[in-house]
Amino acid sequence: MSNFDFEIIGRSLGYLFFEGMRFTLTLTFLAAIGGVILGTGLAIIRLSGGRVLSAVAAGYVNLVRALPLVLVIFWFYFLVPYLGQWLTGSSRPIHVGGFASALITFIVFEAAYFSEIMRAGIASIPRGQAAAGLALGLTPLQSMRYVILPQVFRIMLPVLLTQTIVLFQDTSLVYVLSITDFLGAASKIAQRDGRLVEMYSFAALVYFIVSFAASRGVQRLRALIAVPR
């Protein structure tokens, strides 16, 4: 403990943040957007699709939620090249970079969780709202788009953001693919210089500060955005 080397942290700040944290935040942001869009689609299909479609959506959501993220990361790491081959009709598995593979994985994985949030949100809107939309002549999709979803996003925004903080922490698991996210960057320096204590302590501190501050922000938001009814 006495020989804790602060300098190693100082010297690697640029690498940690401009390489590592940039990757982590970009992945978090894009996966959250993609996950919410796909998750919302899944929720709508489950609630208003035909019997077959909604069973498929439900099966997907329940399957993904039963699996550990680490396993899903491995699945997609090996599967995506073959999916690419199949989609493009290429004769060989397509090489996909670490970022694309991670992004696809997190969108697909988080969509299952976002879908449950959106489903709860849609179910929480009084049924008369959809009826009023239909009575005005809106189609079911228009009613969803203009009447229901705006209310759901407002009610569920804090929960969606909280899930995004979980997602931010979860992205550290791309470590298993040796990708240089924030933790990956810290780990590389730690192992190169034999400074595991310093680098992992610092990484933990940064994750804590970001997550803690963000969840405080979400609490503030919760109070601010109640829908006037």
Partner: peptide, 23 residues
Amino acid sequence: IELFRNMPLLVQLFLWYFVFPDL
């Protein structure tokens, strides 16, 4: 609660595995 909720599990495992013994 805040301490254990605001760090990724992976990072917490590294703390226990690599850092804690050194303390």
